[in-house]
Amino acid sequence: MRFGWIVGLSVLACAAAALAQGPGGPPGPVEGPLPSHQGGIVWYGTLRSGIAEAKRTNRPILLISAAPHCHNVSGIW
C-alpha cells in the first residue's frame, strides 16, 4: 500500500515538474525514437566541450539541462 503511494506521488511530482515546464502537460508515454530516416538533435553532453565548439565555429548555442532519472530511477527524463 505504502509503495503504491510512493510511486503515485513520484509520478505526480514528475507531472508537476513537466507542467512547470510549460503547456506540454504531464508525462504520459515516453517519446520513442525518431523515425529511422531522420536523426534527432546532436547534443554535446558537457558544458566545456559545447562552449568550446560554439566559440570555435561561431555558432549560437541551444542549451538544455535535465535530470536523467525520476525518483532516482534511471532511464527516464
Partner: peptide, 23 residues
C-alpha cells in the same frame, strides 16, 4: 523533461546551425 518541441522536424533542422548542449 518535456521534449515535444525538440523532437519536431523543423526544430531539428534549425538545430544544425547551432551548437546544442544538453547537460
Amino acid at each position: 523533461m518535456d521534449r515535444s518541441f525538440l523532437l519536431q522536424k523543423e526544430v531539428i533542422e534549425a538545430s544544425r546551425d547551432f551548437v546544442c548542449i544538453r547537460l
